[in-house]
Design a protein around this nucleic acid. Structure first.
Length: 296
DNA sequence: ATACACGCCTGCTGGC
DNA sequence: TGCCAGCAGGCGTGTA
């Protein structure tokens, strides 16, 4: 499922194709993939048609492409992949993918005509054109803007301006399970179920341990492991279990081979050999080693 | 402020 | 072989 590493892989792949390109044509095949767009498809098409695109940006799992304006950009094409969304770069006359919902043709000054498919089997993802607003966590920097729909999203742990000390303090004030806190995108963004389980395994913490009971070293260790697992996954091109996550060229990532806990119920913990267990938590699966990861 | 259920969606899997 | 329940889960919304 696309979490930070997967979305970042998409951003990196998209950048050379969209930066400086002009929107030549937009076709909305399924209006349900515009759920985040607060107006009919014709409005979405009208706002994009002829627009010049800038380099894509990302915060957490949100990806956006600012539309060039006379001065600073005020609008962006916002993309959220949801559970199964893909952004695929294809040649100009490429046929639709099986789950293409929106098709955007671009003219790039160097690469010529390109076709971008937004494909989404389960339609939890969405595109929209969203106004850019000042980032509340960038005081004094009017240049840092966010799509309005992502304004509540906290910085992610690999953002250069992520405030680790503030995060650790906020985490240790949360009177909730530490895994719930990791998944709260308004506290820290980009972490989903897979990398939460992996970071908790690496830090030897039980996801249901109250966040406000974490020692300072334990919280710091958890953040370090979150960063490490996100970085490793990014270096491997993300986690692909099946065709639900692919990069812009339709290729799978390799990090699924490196998972230590997620989806490994019944298999030995790579650290101690005890079988990994799968438990229900927050209406989803949680995977942990019952020996290494206990509530303290 | 915080916590929880729910709806959104399709395709795959396992049991009968 | 066919059918259907169960499962995968990010995020916004509604309710308590």
């Amino acid at each position: 499922m696309p979490e930070l590493p997967e979305v970042e892989v998409v951003r990196l792949g998209l950048a050379p194709a969209v930066d400086g390109a002009t929107v030549a044509d937009v076709v909305v095949l399924d209006e349900r993939s515009l759920r985040r767009h607060g107006a009919p498809a014709a409005d979405f098409v009208g706002q994009l048609a002829g627009a010049r695109l800038l380099a894509p940006r990302r915060r957490g799992k949100f990806l956006w492409v600012p539309l060039d304006g006379d001065e600073a950009p005020t609008e962006a094409l916002l993309v959220h992949l949801g559970m199964s969304g893909q952004v695929l770069l294809r040649s100009a006359d490429a046929p639709d993918e099986r789950h293409t919902r929106i098709r955007i043709d671009l003219d790039h000054p160097e690469h010529g005509r390109l076709r971008v498919h937004f494909a989404d089997q389960r339609r939890f993802g969405s595109m929209s054109v969203d106004p850019l607003v000042a980032a509340r966590d960038a005081p004094g920097d009017a240049a840092e803007t966010l799509p309005a729909q992502a304004a509540h999203i906290a910085r992610d742990p690999i953002d250069p301006r992520f405030d680790a000390a503030a995060f650790l303090a906020a985490l240790r004030r949360r009177r909730t399970a530490v895994k719930r806190a990791l998944l709260d995108q308004s506290l820290v963004s980009g972490i989903g179920n897979i990398y939460a389980d992996e970071a908790l395994w690496a830090a030897r913490l039980h996801g249901e341990q109250p966040a406000d009971s974490l020692s300072c070293p334990a919280a710091a260790r958890l953040l370090a492991e979150v960063r490490a697992v996100l970085a490793r996954a990014l270096a491997e091109g993300g986690t692909s279990f099946d065709a639900q996550y692919l990069n812009v060229n339709g290729q799978a990532g390799y990090f699924a081979h490196r998972l230590n806990a997620y989806g490994r119920q019944g298999l030995p913990c790579p650290r101690c050999g005890t079988p990994i267990v799968r438990e229900e938590f927050m209406n989803r699966g949680s995977h942990r080693c019952p020996r290494c990861q206990r509530v303290r």
